[in-house]
Design a protein around this nucleic acid. Structure first.
Lengths: 256, 256
DNA sequence: TGTGTCGGATTGTCGGACGATATCTTCGAA
DNA sequence: TTCGAAGATATCGTCCGACAATCCGACACA
């Protein structure tokens, strides 16, 4: 479209440290090295790749950062399964930097929550249900503390996610959930009846899950999320306003 | 539960390169440095943080890998907005390593697709609609080439994502979309009527979007995804089987 | 059995170095 | 004077060698 005659593509020499990372990554992704298996010491990698240790280190840092390799107690590197939260926080960070609006978050949360609770209603195990019960009991005890309620709300939704038995859905949800939490905290602090309504919704959702009643579960999840949105509106914030201002105060104090 | 008396938490000292990364990240997230602005040369960071250049380099590699900083033509580091695909491929990788099943992918795709097309039907701009039209025209031309159709299908869904105007939803979808593509390719290669049905569904979806007919859009999106699932079943694969085996052949040849 | 000590291995960090390349400066020619 | 080319400068990617801190295993000792 733009270039009329491009005989040669731009030369693009990949730095050595990236090649190292890619080479290791490929071996992991193709299953040649399985999770838990050691990847070799830095010195060994230096010999294998024929580059300097600094270069190797820059390469493995990337994979280590992604969570697909980890140092075990030996200090030796081993392949590991990346955990959700590590990835989620990156995506959340991107959302903040892109200044997504509350409306976007609301729409996505609604869709994801519906699918998640449907899965939970169909497949929740008794132990997951017990965990949710316990969460609700704890919530009832701290109803006067908005921050604590917000945290337990976040935990409750994480439990539903786990109970849904759908990891793809969980991975899709987690980043937005990380943004929902500070928003909920803010709302609960400003809407007096918030915590009580939240608790009631949680109770109904759990009850529906217990009865394997998909429709009721969806209904209460929908109400719950709509409450959240209405709460947000009642605090005087506009739906189409970026949520970064809310999130940042949290991010600045949280450890990565 | 396991430990009866845990007086002290585990001790863990954070390496310097991580502290460097976190310090810079914090300054970016709190908006002290805005996207596009330079972050300083390696030498400057060395002076500021009082650590060796190797240490600084390991730190900035992490942020560079995450896409929140980038080298511009100067080679100097500048803050940048992380692009979706970079993040998505990480999450996709996690899905593969966790050996998620087709069923999980199907459920998540359905939920996300429904929400996305709803947004597209409500908000698609005429230029986005034109792009989709163009995509459909190209698809019609290569109907005999399953791989090409699969690629255009992937593009079509990306267009819908963009047209939805919801970036949270887009970020949530992209990882699973990356897994959908190789699956679709495999299916189209084995189900003769696949490409034609796919094209028909795309046409109806676009038509519904053009008419701002949310219900019709949802209906055809649902049919489209169900076709995909049925196609998968017809190839003899079980829904509860991990999809890594399909994906890996792709991943091994794709560049990161 | 439990404890203290020792040596080897490995990592985190450091200082210095070099070539390649992009940017800036200077200076000569039109 | 203006423009362009040659040289100087800055910055990065990579390399080398080094050291301390820490972990692991072995071994002696109470």
């Amino acid at each position: 479209m733009t270039e009329l005659l491009e005989k040669f593509g731009r030369i693009h020499s990949t730095p050595a440290y990236q090649l190292v990372a890619e080479a290791i990554e490929r071996r992991i992704l193709t299953g040649r090295i399985r999770p838990g298996e050691p990847i070799g010491t830095e010195a060994e990698l230096v010999k294998q790749f024929g580059v300097n240790r600094s270069t190797v280190r820059e390469g493995i840092r990337l994979l280590e950062h992604d969570g697909i390799i980890q140092r075990q107690s030996n200090r030796r590197l081993a392949v590991s399964l990346p955990h959700y939260q590590r990835l989620a926080s990156r995506t959340t960070r991107a959302m903040v930097l892109h200044e997504v609006t509350f409306r976007e978050l609301y729409e996505a949360s609604m869709a994801l929550q519906m699918a998640t609770i449907e899965g939970a209603a169909l497949r929740a195990t008794s132990s997951m249900i017990a965990a949710m019960e316990e969460n609700i009991a704890r919530t009832a005890k701290v109803l006067g503390d908005p921050a604590a309620v917000a945290e337990l709300d976040s935990e409750f939704h994480a439990l539903i996610g786990k109970a849904s038995g759908n990891r793809v859905l969980q991975l899709a949800r987690e980043p937005s959930d990380l943004l929902v939490y500070p928003t909920t905290k803010m709302i609960l602090g400003r809407v007096p009846e918030g915590p009580a309504r939240l608790l009631e919704a949680h109770r109904h959702m759990l009850e529906a899950i217990r009865r394997r009643d998909v429709d009721a579960a969806r209904l209460w999840a929908r109400r719950h999320i709509n409450d959240w949105r209405k709460g947000f509106e009642r605090t005087g914030n506009g739906l189409d306003q970026p949520i970064d201002s809310l999130y940042l105060r949290e991010a600045a104090t949280s450890s990565s």
